[in-house]
Design a protein around this nucleic acid. Structure first.
Length: 262
DNA sequence: ATGGCATTGCAACAATGA
């Protein structure tokens, strides 16, 4: 089974690239972030014709997340249902193809000390609480998305440029570590203990040309899924050329035979 | 090389991103 997470940075602008990626990569489950559109604007039909159903949590202008799947999609939940008023569409969770998969767009945080920074920290607390309350360590579960967190300086090409930023601050790295402490495994890190590969490069300053980026998109999974892992890679080619998102897809694959044996 | 900000809503730029 192949699961992909990709911040597409506008599903309307990325329409042709999205369909081409689906045709090329052929994921079983595809988590998307930054749809930047309402559900009615999502290309359901084009994806349905390719065999994918979709669970959407869209929003006008900003944010928006989705999970696409070749299998039936059940038990869809949106946001955290924790009683907090959150007008931003950043979290959706579904059950499909024998796993539960969440697509998360963790807030950027703007500048440390800003209101957006406080929102990011609170959102991470809420995510942590959601995982503790809703995920059993012995069930196959994957938390996919744009975390806006580089877990370690090894995940940053030029750490000095990002030191203390909202992507690298010890507070968000601590929140990330807290998720791991709940039993989730950073699947790309398992396969790349040396750090990287990078998943985001700024549009400005020729960052991709200089490979000046960060690893901020992740797939965290429980042990029943992590032990089936066969590969974890970043599709750098998707960042190339005209009309690319500033994020590259993260692709993880799992052994099928081990699934039935638990 | 893979390039030198992009996207949205609005109708000129401001807001946002990471």
């Amino acid at each position: 089974m192949k699961i992909v997470t990709w911040n597409v940075n506008s599903v309307r602008v990325r329409h042709d690239r999205l369909l081409a990626f689906v045709d090329r990569a052929a994921p079983d489950v595809l988590c998307l972030q930054e749809l930047k559109c309402v559900d009615a604007q999502f290309p359901r039909d084009a994806l349905r014709s390719r065999g994918y159903g979709a669970a959407l949590f869209g929003q006008k202008t900003y944010n928006g997340v989705a999970v696409l799947s070749r299998g039936d999609i059940e038990s869809v939940t949106r946001s955290f249902d924790d009683g907090e008023d959150d007008p931003q569409s950043r979290f959706i969770c579904v059950a499909t193809m024998g796993v539960r998969v969440a697509s998360a767009y963790i807030p950027n945080g703007s500048l440390v000390g800003s209101d957006k920074w406080a929102y990011k920290l609170r959102w991470l607390e809420r995510l942590n609480s959601w995982v503790r309350a809703n995920v059993r360590p012995d069930e196959p579960f994957a938390l996919c998305g744009d975390y806006n967190i580089a877990p370690d300086d090894q995940d940053v090409r030029v750490p000095a440029e990002w030191s203390g930023s909202t992507l690298c601050h010890e507070a968000v790295r601590g929140a990330y570590a807290s998720l791991l402490s709940l039993g989730l495994v950073d699947l790309v890190r398992v396969r790349h203990p040396e750090g990287g590969p990078l998943t985001w490069w700024d549009y400005r300053g020729g960052a991709f040309f200089k490979d000046d980026g960060l690893r901020i998109d992740h797939v965290l999974a429980t042990a029943p899924l992590a032990r089936r892992l066969t590969s974890a890679v970043v599709d750098r080619d998707e960042r190339k050329g005209e009309g690319a998102s500033d994020h590259a897809p993260v692709i993880v694959t799992f052994d099928e035979a081990a699934a039935s044996s638990g």
